[in-house]
């Protein structure tokens, strides 16, 4: 169990959640069924979810409720989703949001 997971909260009890596996940038990870991608990744200490499309600067979860769009990641078969709202499912393949190339300025994809 990751050290960031809260297991004994004095006031909030959550039901048992099944452990499932998913991948992030090709790496196989364990998460709890139904939790959003961003929470499952943070439990493993992973905060960088996206590189800014233009500058490539690192971005992570900011609002956690679908307002800010900072946590956009790519999910195989679904395209771009918000990692804070999208529940993980068994076998899900997640890839970080990437810096894009720009043919006008000549910037190449990293």
């Amino acid at each position: 169990m990751s050290k960031l997971r809260i297991v004994n909260h004095p006031l909030i009890k959550k039901g048992e959640q099944k452990r499932i596996s998913f991948t992030f940038n090709g790496e196989s990870l364990e998460g709890l069924e139904g939790e959003p991608i961003a929470a499952a990744l943070l439990a493993h200490g992973i905060r960088i979810l996206r590189r800014h499309e233009e500058s490539g600067s690192n971005r992570g979860l900011y609002c956690a409720i679908g307002h800010c769009m900072e946590c956009r990641v790519d999910v195989q078969g679904k395209g771009q989703v918000r990692a804070c709202l999208t529940p993980i499912v068994e076998g899900m393949e997640v890839v970080e949001g990437k810096q894009l190339e720009n043919k006008i300025t000549g910037r190449e994809a990293p």
Binding site: Y62, H67, C68, M69, E70, R72
Partner: peptide, 8 residues
Amino acid sequence: MGACQGRV
């Protein structure tokens, strides 16, 4: 004018 449409 970005992805969050100014919500932030």
